[in-house]
């Protein structure tokens, strides 16, 4: 156990019946930093969150939150962490204000005492403070849930898919708020199915089928990209994907909007140029570019699926 870590996970495994939800997961989150856990639905993100918030017992391995053992010191952990579950879990029949002051009282504090911490977030929903939580929009619900998870000034904040189902503007606002919170010294573990959000974290980890495939600083994960990435723009993306996949096989051509990403070794460039020559009608533009974090995760996923 290292004193610099807000969260430390060592060899954690957890099964539900025959399903292995977590396989030997290890990771560490430095105090006062944001760690983003990226992974598709069913990857095991929520299971990991529930073990760390002391709601599940691990089958094997150990985990520490704020230096406290997740099983032995569960009572102490529960006082010190803020948890926002993946599912909206506030009282829908209570108003915004009632929810907030209820959670404040439960943690033996008041909204007033820690108002500075939630001010930026809460101000946005304060005009609706007399509205029942069940009648809020998705983005506002998440802001309220975050306020409730923060109102007792937690040392570590667990946010399970806080931006799922939230519009793009609110998502950006949400991440801005997380940065603010990090600057006030709170350790944040956040999970998301959106790969682009990984770039907004200090460190990120990719989880799939219960195993964490890679963790690191987003930039260094990009540096570790194997081979070359070619970005292809075209006027007929659908047709191009079809034609290229026939030539290169599945799982090599990926579409990002109107842009196609193709992973391969340097010789791929020669092939693509030849392909461009033979298909002038597609208006291809080929560029050898630096991959994004999404490309790295896709590559990780593919190699994990193959092995």
């Amino acid at each position: 156990m290292n004193g610099n870590f807000g969260i430390e996970v060592r060899g954690l495994s957890k099964s539900f019946g025959k399903t292995k939800a977590l396989k030997n997961v290890s990771l560490a989150v430095e105090k006062g930093s944001i760690f983003g856990l990226i992974g598709p639905d069913g990857a095991g993100k929520s299971t990991l969150f529930r073990i760390l918030t002391t709601l599940y017992l691990p089958d094997s391995g150990e985990a520490f939150v704020s230096g406290l053992h997740c099983v032995k010191n569960y009572k102490e952990i529960r006082k010190r962490v803020g948890y926002m579950p993946g599912r909206f879990s506030l009282y829908q029949d209570l108003t915004v204000e009632e929810n907030l002051s209820f959670y404040a009282s439960v943690f033996k504090t008041t909204v007033k005492e820690n108002y500075h911490l939630i001010k930026d977030i809460y101000q946005q929903i304060e005009p609706f403070k007399n509205r029942r939580a069940g009648n809020l929009s998705g983005g506002m619900k998440q802001k309220l849930a975050l306020s409730c998870a923060l109102v007792h000034k937690p040392e570590v904040l667990f946010l399970d898919e806080p931006t799922t189902g939230v519009d793009a503007v609110s998502r950006k606002e949400f991440w801005d708020m997380l940065k603010e919170l990090k600057n006030s010294g709170i350790t944040i573990l956040v999970s998301t199915p959106y790969m682009d959000e990984a770039m907004l974290c200090d460190r990120t980890g990719f989880i799939q089928n219960g195993a964490v495939l890679k963790t690191g600083i987003p930039e260094s994960i990009i540096d570790d990209f194997q081979g070359e990435m070619f970005s292809v723009t075209t006027s007929k993306p659908q047709e191009t994907v079809k034609l290229l996949s026939e030539e290169l096989g599945d799982n090599t051509v990926f579409r990002f909007g109107s842009e196609l990403h193709i992973y391969g070794n340097p010789s791929m460039e020669i092939f693509l140029k030849a392909f461009k020559e033979s298909h002038p009608g597609l208006n291809l533009e080929i560029q050898n570019t630096r991959p994004g974090i999404e490309d790295c995760f896709i590559q990780l996923m593919n190699s994990n699926n193959e092995s």
Binding site: L55, K79, V81, F88, V106, A149
Partner: peptide, 13 residues
Amino acid sequence: EMGTMETLLVSPL
């Protein structure tokens, strides 16, 4: 059912 038990448990109650 509403999932609120989850947040109640992760509290000093």
